[in-house]
């Protein structure tokens, strides 16, 4: 982790210390999803977590959000331990999480109306956000009437409208086609830049992680995975996402990080194969 200015103790937007999460399995045993996770995210930083499937990325995010209690270790946010849901964070879920019975504008304004903002005001604010994410003509649609990319953009607006200090994003763009995805990544960076918000971004796409982040955290293969690598991404900002993959710095970082990630990915693959062999 980088040193912060002149020795003052840093208030991390998200801080996990020695967090372990175990689940009980249907067979009666326990399954360690993640073990001894240390994660520190300073305000204003963009941190990506990359790891093979099933390595516990969503679990980590859920602990940071306060939706899951760590089995041991502590999760804190801005110096205070997380009790219940983390009120300073917004969460973009891996799955579709828009309320299907609310229109786009009702979904986007939900965070405001539930906080007691008047409906008219909340809707005009929501309309501003819909314009930002390019959905101003779709305010009255229901989620099932949108494309997958439009639903994701609605979710972005829904998460950002409450002006959170922390944004937790769980593979928000992984279901999108390459072009849409690049547009969304650009939009995300534009929104985030200078916003001072901390972003924890989960992806299994290393390119995406390097292109967007200040820091990339590599998670080992499960079960009981833990942080196996931590890389500072020093590519200057603002970044041009369209050409960044040709940037020599990007190429170098990619080679270095992929060398580490590859080991974990193949471990996961081997484990899956071994399991298959056992079953057969």
């Amino acid at each position: 982790m980088t040193l912060s200015s002149a020795g003052t103790p840093t208030q991390y937007a998200v801080e996990l210390q020695g967090c372990t999460k175990q689940f009980s399995t249907p067979g009666g045993g326990t399954y360690f999803a993640v073990r001894d996770i240390d994660l520190k995210v300073e305000p204003g930083r963009f941190v990506s977590i990359v790891g093979p499937t099933g390595s516990g990325k969503s679990t980590i995010l859920n602990m940071a959000a306060g939706l899951l209690k760590p089995s041991s270790g502590t999760a804190s946010s801005f110096g205070a331990p997380v009790h219940g849901v983390n009120r300073r964070a917004s969460y973009m879920f891996q799955q579709d999480a828009l309320l299907p019975w609310k229109t786009v504008i009702e979904n986007v304004s939900l965070g405001l109306t539930m906080a007691g903002v008047g409906k008219a005001e909340a809707h005009s604010e929501a309309q501003r956000w819909l314009e930002k994410v390019g959905l101003k003509n779709f305010a009255d649609r229901y989620p099932h009437q949108l494309s997958g990319g439009m639903r994701k953009r609605t979710a972005v607006a829904q998460a950002w409208i409450v002006n959170p200090d922390i944004l937790l994003m769980d593979e928000p763009f992984s279901a999108l086609d390459v072009q849409t995805r690049q547009i969304m990544e650009n939009e995300l960076l534009a929104l985030w830049q200078e916003s001072g918000k901390a972003v924890v971004f989960i992806t299994h796409d290393l390119d995406e992680a390097i292109a967007l982040s200040d820091e990339v955290v590599i998670l080992g293969a499960g079960p009981g995975s833990t942080v196996v690598g931590n890389y500072e991404i020093t590519i200057p900002r603002p970044r041009d996402l369209l050409d960044i993959r040709d940037d020599p710095k990007f190429v170098e970082l990619h080679r270095e990080i992929w060398g580490r990630l590859k080991i974990e990915v193949s471990k996961t693959y081997e484990a899956a194969r071994a399991e298959e062999g056992e079953v057969a």
Binding site: A65, L67, V85, N86, R87, A89, S90, Y91, F93, Q95, D96, A97, L98, L99, L110, G111, M114, A115, Q158, V162
Partner: peptide, 11 residues
């Protein structure tokens, strides 16, 4: 996930 989302939005 709908419940979690609503809770995160402050419900």
């Amino acid at each position: 996930v709908l419940v979690d989302n609503a809770r995160m939005l402050g419900a």
